[in-house]
Design a binder for these strands. Sequence first.
DNA 1: CGGTATTTTGATTTAGCTCAACAGACGTGG
DNA 2: CCACGTCTGTTGAGCTAAATCAAAATACCG
Lengths: 249, 249
Amino acid sequence: MADKRETPLSNPSLKGHHCSVDLRLEKLGMVPFFQDLPEAELREVNKKFTANHYTRGETIYRQGDPSTMLRVVVAGNVKLVSHTSEGQSVLLDMLQPGEFFGNPAASGKEVYNETAETQTAACVLSIRLRDFRDVMNRYASVAMSVLDITTDRLQESRQRIRHLSTLPVKKRLAYILVTLANKFGEKDRQGLLIQLPLSRKDLADMAGTSTETTSRIMSQFQDDDLITSGRQWVAVKDKPELLRISAES
Amino acid sequence: MADKRETPLSNPSLKGHHCSVDLRLEKLGMVPFFQDLPEAELREVNKKFTANHYTRGETIYRQGDPSTMLRVVVAGNVKLVSHTSEGQSVLLDMLQPGEFFGNPAASGKEVYNETAETQTAACVLSIRLRDFRDVMNRYASVAMSVLDITTDRLQESRQRIRHLSTLPVKKRLAYILVTLANKFGEKDRQGLLIQLPLSRKDLADMAGTSTETTSRIMSQFQDDDLITSGRQWVAVKDKPELLRISAES
DNA sequence: CGGTATTTTGATTTAGCTCAACAGACGTGG
DNA sequence: CCACGTCTGTTGAGCTAAATCAAAATACCG
């Protein structure tokens, strides 16, 4: 409605995600659950990973595919989406470099319950599930770290159930914006710019609502000077107020 | 409306939950994540647990309490409920003997995000979080098993998010009844009797809806001969049809 | 047998969905 | 670099599932 300039995201499609061997090893050491692994072991584990590069919007695996690999985002962003038979979609998670996805458990012939798709160009490492379980069995610190992350995700997931069950859309959206700003926000002249292509549809699929309703509420937030937003991007201008809205009685 | 007889649940309040030392050790061996532990180790671990007995409706811990213990249900049932500031409640999980609750991760000064309350008289074992983490560090099989269970719970939780986001109340309730029948159902002349005091409010808090709506839909199911139900109990008569309803387009 | 908690049913209201049309933004090829 | 076509986002109008409010009916408890 007001001053929408060019997309302020740092060129999302061209960042050099080489997936080179150097990058791989360097990044692997930064993955939370390999932090405590000694250099030598890390080098050993690194061998078991395969690197893959994807352009924006590519599908890494589909809901229903047999779950045989565990993957780690090295660069770029990946989203996990669950699709219903009616063609609706639910955005389950939005991943950053360092985060893993695919089932760490399911020691056997399970299938993925969601589709993994790149949100930006991305580099992803894969390890056979069996190999990863060997690593976890050998190094307790890795298993514990994966458990901690999974527990956190369960907590977030339950938080979201609580929100879907009890909060109106406006509050849910306010909360989602705060969360995204915390995770992906970068200081900017607009405020906290969410460094990620983010459409109204994406937000709607996170909040469990329609794009139209999302658009209306985003316009409201914009009018109230809480956010700035354009096509596929959002910047949070007043996080405290959004947080207040999400929690107010 | 039709033939509601006395509560068919096997006397829920009086079952002998002694929480004796014998019972403890026996039951501990049955807990999924201690299955692979050798007898001697199990005996060792057993010492670190404290047993507690609760009557129906007692609170084990409250949302916001510091999370210092990990607990295991030995007998009876425990429910995890999250409360909002407006006094609404969301029923997150309904636990059986053998299941654990409380945060297995959160190595430090976290708090519980939900309240744990007994649904029937129950016997519960507690271990200090620190001690449990020692056990997980020592025995990879325990850590892996806890990870597997947590991963399963995350999947269920995401399934529920999908349902809350995309399905109308009737389908959500149909699915919940199927799930409960699978977990707590016992063959009976009524069909699959859900062996657990289960009010309309409980069902509503699971489905993210109001008791009134729940009651209306349950009446419908009863009219369609899919369930039989009375005060605080439900029996599933036609599980396949309920499943079909939950998934139909 | 009376009292309390649960469940049912009815009437009304409403948040958010759906359908529909339009308007900006992007990028693409001429 | 401009014109066009295609996505993405906005706005409006009506509709509907489910919430809320209200009251009666039923089951269980001592």
